[in-house]
């Protein structure tokens, strides 16, 4: 009983601390969604401005935009902990490390994924996606963005700060990101063409559950390895 209470206190303390750190640097919080808006603005300018074409490429543009802005925003959350010695303190916390990593993923979801979840459907609507497709896009973001946060966290815990880690991270994550991209963009495309999106959404939900159950353990194992080396 006492152990459970102290675990809950440690997890809450991590959440409070990380959110306070993010709150102290609001400009960093704005970066992912500003970048995302820039991507979504530049694409129609570069492509032919026909509404039919824009609606056709919208799912791919939006999801690639989410991928490219979300992952670089998750990485600094881990990098800071490794550089200032907080990682060692997490390793020495009496609370189970995977649980702390899950809390860290929650922080990433709140700080990075949530703004994108709110903005991306608006971007989809501006791209001329029909309403059913915008709804499906919102649902896919709800499942896909946290999945990306979890994967990004585990990947960053493994390679951030290593020599050439900046190159390793995208290479390492690529095979894990591809299914998310395929099913998430596929669901939106299906909905836009009037086909059922449900199968792809179910696959996305399965990927989310898989990431939720495995990524915290992977991140914890990665952090232990870093502790062993440092």
């Amino acid at each position: 009983m006492r152990g459970e209470i102290s675990t809950a206190r440690e997890v809450l303390a991590l959440l409070r601390r990380d959110l306070a750190v993010l709150g102290a640097r609001p400009a960093d919080l704005a970066q992912p969604w500003v970048l995302f808006l820039i991507v979504c603005t530049l694409f129609p300018l570069g492509a032919s401005p026909s509404p039919a074409l824009l609606a056709e490429i919208a799912p791919a543009v939006i999801w690639v935009g989410v991928l490219l802005t979300l992952l670089p925003a998750v990485e600094p959350l881990v990098r800071a902990d490794l550089q200032d010695g907080t990682a060692d303190r997490l390793l020495l916390s009496p609370a189970p490390l995977p649980l702390l990593m899950l809390a860290k993923a929650m922080v990433a979801c709140l700080a990075v994924a949530l703004p994108l979840m709110l903005i991306a459907p608006v971007a989809g609507w501006l791209f001329g996606l029909p309403w059913p497709a915008v709804t499906v896009l919102a649902l896919c973001l709800l499942l896909g963005a946290p999945t990306l946060c979890l994967l990004g966290l585990a990947g960053a815990a493994l390679v951030v700060g290593l020599p050439r880690g900046g190159l390793l991270l995208p290479l390492l994550l690529l095979p894990l990101l591809v299914p998310v991209l395929i099913f998430a963009a596929g669901a939106v495309r299906a909905a836009a063409h009037g086909f059922p999106a449900e199968p792809a959404i179910r696959m996305l939900a399965a990927l989310a559950l898989l990431a939720l159950s495995l990524a915290p353990f992977a991140a914890a194992a990665a952090l232990r390895l870093r502790g062993q080396a440092g």
């Binding site: 750190v21 102290a24 640097r25 800071a80 010695g85 907080t86």
Partner: peptide, 8 residues
């Protein structure tokens, strides 16, 4: 390392 958060 001190394990402190520079922003806080």
């Amino acid at each position: 390392l001190d394990g402190l958060k520079a922003e806080l």
